[in-house]
Write a protein that binds this DNA or RNA. Structure first.
Lengths: 212, 212, 212, 212
DNA sequence: GATGAATGAGGCTTCATTCAT
DNA sequence: TATGAATGAAGCCTCATTCAT
């Protein structure tokens, strides 16, 4: 059974390397990120990287995979009991927020994965997460509707899409200045800086208006 | 007053060059696009490009600007009379669709501009368009509300954001396989291929559920 | 009709580049020869080389081809009339000698091409020349035998092989210290340095002993 | 007295390492042979190799030395009594043949040693063998001449050179496709594949024609 | 103004060698 | 002593940009 050299590294070091890589990938994008820069950031030698990963693309894929792992870990922290949707939704957005801060680099990498210029690079990988997010919001919508917390003449999937769009673009607004401005223009009367909490407040406002 | 050499070119040639550039930028992304390839596609010499534009970035900016021009031209074709929102909205989506086909390359370039890996590259530029789109949807929402076509207990901006999100992600779904899959998963029960018309139908469904 | 960039260069420059490349290839061998070193020797930039040739291997092949061209040019200077074999043979060896000096690098490259470590690299190429050399010596042997200058109970091809072996190993002795020592050990009582003329004298001695 | 670590290894392991090394050296040539590949083939660790040998060159030299040892062992199997030259010569060629098969890798390494691209790498080493081969053929020629088996107006050394050339190029023809083709072109009317036995037959033909 | 050959810095990757365990 | 991970210099090649014609 051949475990890759990378997997035999102490977990702490693995994470250090992936974090550093994610940082560079996030800041510069895949193509502008330099192997040398990544290695320096990771505190490993140029050659070591190629012992751990097949090549730059291989590294990127592992970074992307860690993004998914992190997201899935995050999922488990979500409240999934029978709480009201009006408790669950803000909790999700607020759970996402520190995550976005802590793992911003990974999320930026993830965001880039959907960009056309990445080509089919990591299509399967990124699809994985969308699937999960689809399930989550469908479940929430279904539960809420069953409990009469939201209007019952709505299509479950449409509600899920509605919520997921909000989550997606809220996320983007935390990661990209472009989307931050867009968010603020629409939902904050063009305000310059909004705290995450304020943004979430605005999103919840929207939810209430449309869903009740 | 120094007019750039490029502007002195016959308009047809200008467009040919920009179209070719957009094509390469769209297919490969900014960083992977090669000057040589662009020149060949544009049918001009390597040196000429640097007579017309300061450098690769300069070219990109002009391409991006043309994207905005095209979008603004498009705007004028939108029905802005007093038609019902239920006529205007599909018209917008359907007006966008051939545009997405005709100028897909430009739109892909535009989409890429929001990606974090492009950095602050064309921030101002891309903001321009969001502003216009904000105005458009606010106007539509306002009119519709005034006419009682949609619920009147909704915030104008929230409705605009709701609609713009849908337009944005519909657009993405036409440009990026990633977002196409996401769209289909949520709104088409995972169907593989949806025609634009079918997609729009689904979006309008959503609109009706949430806005009436 | 697409002529390669290289072929469009002034012939003088082409030759300068090939000569320099041959020099480095000869001194270091294909694998140890560095592109940078070659370019410096050729007085061109690193990038230019890749405009002229597809890659290192491509360059090598062109160098090898020039070797063959040179050899074929050389062929034409050989006396092919009805002179006595005892005039023709020394003339060939002596024609080869300045050639070996002038184009030693190319000949070393050629010699390397037969070495197993070059793999199938330039097999076809090198075979070309052997064919020519086969024809030459067969012709000579035939003529000489017809004229009664050499024994007539010998197989033409065996005589040709005999002469070609001598030429080959004489050539090697001019190109490789290893073969120089071997030559001297056998034919010069271990003398240290023999002039080419002296070597040829010894070879002719041999010829006379075995062929008459 | 410091015996090298390598020599303290069980002989079987020593041989295994050298055989593996010879295999890689033969297949790829010295410069293309990778230490890692060699170690894997030899079943030892990367670090061990550097305990056994000073460096890559050191390993190569030991491999080369083994080549010589093998050749010298081989020598002892040669019939050196008073047999007729027409018995001894084919015996030598036929003794060499299985050796070429069994130790082909070593012989290829040896052949490469004479190539100019190896530089002065192993000059002394390879000379050693030529010296032995010189002695062998001189002895044979002398004996044969004394017994009147070959013409007596020939120079001993020239006969030795003649025979050694044949042996050398026969050997090459078994090791390198290039020389195989050359051999066949001259001595087998361009036949594609000749068994070793057939080749030897042809060589002996030659010997008889020139020496009797 | 237009051309396209030339430049050379910089990118990714390999690999002989060292060293901590 | 043996291991194999780590090192980092050096290699090949690309490509945005410049410049001579």
């Amino acid at each position: 059974m051949k475990t890759s050299t990378f997997e035999k590294l102490p977990e702490q070091k693995q994470i250090r390397i992936l974090d550093a890589s994610a940082g560079v990938f996030a800041q510069k994008g895949y193509f502008q990120a330099g192997i040398a820069e990544i290695c320096q950031a990771a505190g490993i030698s140029n050659g070591a990287l190629y012992k751990y990963f097949q090549n730059k693309k291989g590294l990127y894929l592992v970074v992307a995979q860690r993004t998914l792992s992190l997201l899935r870990e995050q999922e488990n922290t979500f409240p999934m009991g029978n709480e009201s949707i009006w408790i669950v939704l803000p909790e999700i957005f607020e759970a996402v927020s520190p995550f976005l801060k802590e793992y911003k680099d990974y999320m930026v990498v993830y965001m880039d994965m959907g960009s056309p210029s990445m080509g089919e690079f990591a299509l399967e990988l990124s699809s994985t997460f969308e699937k999960w997010s689809f399930d989550l919001f469908c479940r929430i919508a279904e539960t809420a509707m069953a409990k009469g917390e939201i209007k019952n003449d709505l299509s479950i999937e449409d509600v899920a899409y509605f919520m997921d769009n909000h989550l997606l673009l809220y996320t983007f607004s935390c990661l990209s200045e472009h989307y931050n401005r867009r968010f603020n223009q629409f939902l904050a009367k063009g305000a310059d800086r909004l705290s995450n909490r304020e943004k979430i407040e605005r999103v919840m406002d929207s939810f209430r208006q449309f869903l009740i």
